[in-house]
Design a binder for these strands. Structure first.
Lengths: 246, 246
DNA sequence: CTCAAATGTCTATTGATATAGACAACCATA
DNA sequence: TATGGTTGTCTATATCAATAGACATTTGAG
C-alpha cells in the first residue's frame, strides 16, 4: 500500500549504504520478502536503488552485523530474523501482557535503581511536593532475548518502599505493585515522540547509529486517580509499533 | 529529566555534522537554549561534542538552511524558530481541532486525488469488496505555513462521491464529510510507527535527509461502526508529539 | 559435469567528510 | 576606542564513502 519511492538521497550527511540498510530492514519487517525468505540479489538491489553493487554490499554487511540477514555464498542472502512487536496503548496498559503471545520469553532487566528527590517537573507529574523522595528504576525490556525498550520509571518513595526488591523478585511492575498492596492501576496519559538513538540506546538496545527510537512518556494512576508511576520508555522503532484502540 | 549523553558516533554511516545538527535541533525544540535565545558558541559546541569547530559549522549551516537558526557575525547564532505541536489522539480525533490554538493558521493542501480499485489490504480495512472503488486523497497539512504532516486517505467511493470537491471547498475532512451528510465520525484504531524520511517526505515536508517521520495508520468509522476512512499520515517527528488521554 | 547465478575479494579512482591552523570581519561593551 | 568574543573564510591533509571493473568461489539445477 504505502510503497515509497526507490530513490535514495546523495551527499546529505547520511551515507547511501546506511539509507539502503534502513530501507531493506524496513522491507524485511514489512514482510516484503517473505515469499522467498531471502533478500533480492545484490545486483537487483543495486539496480533498484540506483547504486553500485559494492554500496549494497556495505548495507547488507551492516544488516548481517545486526544479525538480521546471513549471506550464503552461491545461494543468496537469507533473512535470519524479522519481527515487529505490536504494543497496545490503552487504559490498562501492561508491558508484558501487551506483548502477549508475540514472544515466548519476556523479561525485564533492572539495570539500576536509586532513591532521589523529585525535580520540579517530576513532582508536578506525580503530584508530590518538589524534592519529595522518589524511587527511580532503570529497566531494559526484552522479548525472546532481544532488547525492545528501555525505561526510566519514577514512583513516590513513601508509598512504594520496597518496590525495588519486589521488582527484582518478579521482573514485573504489575507484580511488584501487587506485592505492595496496589492491585490495579490505570494509564492516565501517554505522550509519544520519536528521535534518533542516543549512545545509551545504542548500548542497551544494541542499535546502530542513525537508528530511531520511539519515546513514550506515560503517567499511571491508581483507581482513585492518584499518580503512582511516571515513566519514560525508549523503544527501538524498527522492532515495535503502537496501537491505540478506541 | 532525560538528558542523554553528549557523545556522537563516528564512522557509522551518519556524518558527524548531521548527528550534531539533529541533536541541536532537538535541544532547540526542548527549549534548552531559551534563556539566551541563542545556540552556544561554535567553540563550546565543538568541545561538547568532541569535534572540530568546522564540523559544528557544517551542522549549523544545515540548520540555517532549514530556517531554524540564523548566524550573526560577531553576535552569535540566533534561534529563529522553535516549535513542537501536540496532537491528541482520541475517540474524536480531528486534525485541525487537535492543533487548537497552538497555531493561528491551519490549512490542508490537496496535492492529488484519484478514484481507484481497492487493494486487498485496503478493502479489508474499509470493509468493502476487493476491487471496489475508493477515493484517494493526498493532503499536506500545514500550521502557520509550516508543513507538519502529509496524509494519504482512502474513502469508499460509492458512499462519498463528490468528496474531493467538498474537501477542496472547505480544506477539512470533517467539513467535507458534513457536506455529504456524515455529521460525526469516530477514530476506531490508530497504529504508530517511526521511520526515516523518504524522498516524498523530504519534498512535501521540507525535511532534511536522516530526519524522522512518525507514521500513523488510522481507521475512522461512522457512529454505527462502519468504516468511512483509512488514512496513513506521516508527521515530521521534530515538529509534533502525540498524546493519548484515557 | 557444466553452466548460470549468486556472494566474496581485490585494485584503483573520485568526491565527501573531518581535522587543523591561521587570520579576517563584526559586535558589544568596558 | 580598545579589547575579547564571536562568526566568516581560506588553505592543507587524511580518512571515509561510492563507483568501476575484474575475477574467484560456492551453490543449485539441468
Amino acid at each position: 500500500m504505502d510503497k515509497g519511492h526507490s530513490n535514495v538521497q546523495r551527499q546529505n550527511g547520511v551515507a547511501l549504504w546506511r539509507q539502503i540498510a534502513d530501507r531493506i530492514r524496513t522491507s524485511i519487517a514489512n514482510g516484503d520478502y517473505d515469499a522467498t525468505g531471502k533478500v533480492p540479489p545484490e545486483m537487483a538491489l543495486a539496480a533498484e536503488f540506483g547504486v553500485n553493487r559494492h554500496t549494497v554490499r556495505s548495507a547488507l554487511a551492516a544488516l548481517a552485523q545486526e544479525g538480521i540477514v546471513r549471506p550464503m555464498q552461491g545461494r543468496g542472502t537469507l533473512i535470519e530474523r524479522k519481527e515487529r512487536l505490536t504494543f497496545p496503548i490503552r487504559r490498562r496498559t501492561r508491558f508484558i501482557e501487551g506483548i502477549g503471545d508475540q514472544a515466548r520469553e519476556k523479561e525485564g532487566l533492572l539495570l539500576h535503581s536509586a532513591e532521589e528527590p523529585a525535580s520540579a517537573e517530576l513532582a508536578a507529574r506525580l503530584q508530590v511536593p518538589e524534592g519529595a523522595s522518589v524511587i527511580r528504576l532503570e529497566i531494559v525490556r526484552k522479548a525472546d532475548g532481544r532488547a525492545v525498550a528501555r525505561s526510566t520509571a519514577w514512583f513516590p518513595a513513601e508509598r512504594f518502599r520496597g518496590l525495588e526488591q519486589a521488582y527484582r523478585d518478579s521482573g514485573s511492575i504489575t507484580a511488584a505493585f501487587g506485592k505492595l498492596g496496589l492491585s490495579d492501576y490505570l494509564r492516565a496519559a501517554t505522550e509519544i515522540t520519536a528521535t534518533h538513538a542516543d549512545s545509551g540506546d545504542l548500548a542497551d538496545l544494541k542499535l546502530s547509529p542513525g537508528a530511531i527510537v520511539l519515546v513514550t512518556r506515560a503517567l499511571n494512576t491508581d483507581t482513585e486517580g492518584v499518580p503512582v508511576q511516571y515513566a519514560i520508555t525508549r523503544f527501538a522503532a524498527d522492532r515495535v509499533q503502537f496501537t491505540i484502540e478506541n
